[in-house]
Simulated assay, not measured.
Amino acid sequence: MSGKPVLHYANTRGRMESVRWLLAAAGVEFEERIMKTKDDFQKLRTDGSLLFQQVPMVEIDGMKMVQTRAILCYIAGKYNLYGKDLKERAWIDMYVEGTTDLMGMIMALPFQAADVKEKNIALITERATTRYFPVYEKALKDHGQDYLVGNKLSWADIHLLEAILMTEELKSDILSAFPLLQAFKGRMSNVPTIKKFLQPGSQRKPPLDEKSIANVRKIFNI
């Protein structure tokens, strides 16, 4: 396949949102084939498009790629967002895994019962401010650069900004004790390609509402 990457997923953030972020930050235009029903998902399964019967799936460079981590690694490498050597790549991987852990907790919230959700919001806030964000604050201080790794934009920076914005949706002042992260957020949000993605009308997805949650439950049978 040539041309724009094609993203197959529901009309929601989920695991595909980080793929949208990375492509957008790289300045790559992409198309979306939105699954609207359970039958749409089943069709992808039965026609052999999904290696492990799961989405996200991205058609890119003649491949039908599945597994979020594999997709993101490929895009980061293809568009020079994955460091200059193995050591930088290792740091990017570590930073990305941390933000992936944090975002995974947030992504699960809409599907939890109200009492569990309330408890987990408190846990996420505590983890963000004591386990995750201190790491990135220290990294920026020790590194002394505008970016987490090397001195150029990488996947780690893009993923961290996505995580920050997701966490701020839970607690708007979550960065109050992290001045370097506040400055980082401002810098990254003004990278031209990212700034464009953050504008209304972009392919960035909003948080799930009740209607969207019901639709996701139907499509994925959860």
Rank of each mutant, 00 (worst) to 15 (best):
T99G: 05
F184D: 09
I71A: 08
A163V: 13
S154H: 02
R187L: 07
S2Y: 03
E32A: 04
M65N: 05
I75R: 04
I222R: 06
L153D: 09
T167L: 02
V149L: 04
Y132K: 06
A108R: 14
Y74P: 05
E162G: 01
E31M: 03
A76K: 13
T130A: 10
A26K: 14
R204M: 09
K218A: 13
I106G: 01
P179K: 12
A70T: 09
P110C: 09
A24Q: 13
Y82R: 04
N151L: 03
C73D: 06
E169M: 00
D93Q: 11
E29K: 15
N11W: 03
A108C: 02
M1Q: 02
A122W: 07
M107F: 06
G150P: 03
V191D: 02
D61C: 01
W91P: 01
A114I: 07
K87N: 04
N221G: 13
I194T: 12
S49W: 00
S202L: 04
E162W: 00
R204Y: 00
L208M: 15
D47S: 13
K64E: 01
Q199L: 15
K218W: 00
E118S: 14
E126A: 12
L161F: 03
L140D: 12
I158Q: 01
R187A: 03
V58P: 01
S212K: 15
V66Y: 05
F220W: 09
W21Q: 02
I174R: 10
A139N: 01
M65Q: 10
K64L: 09
E162M: 10
N190W: 00
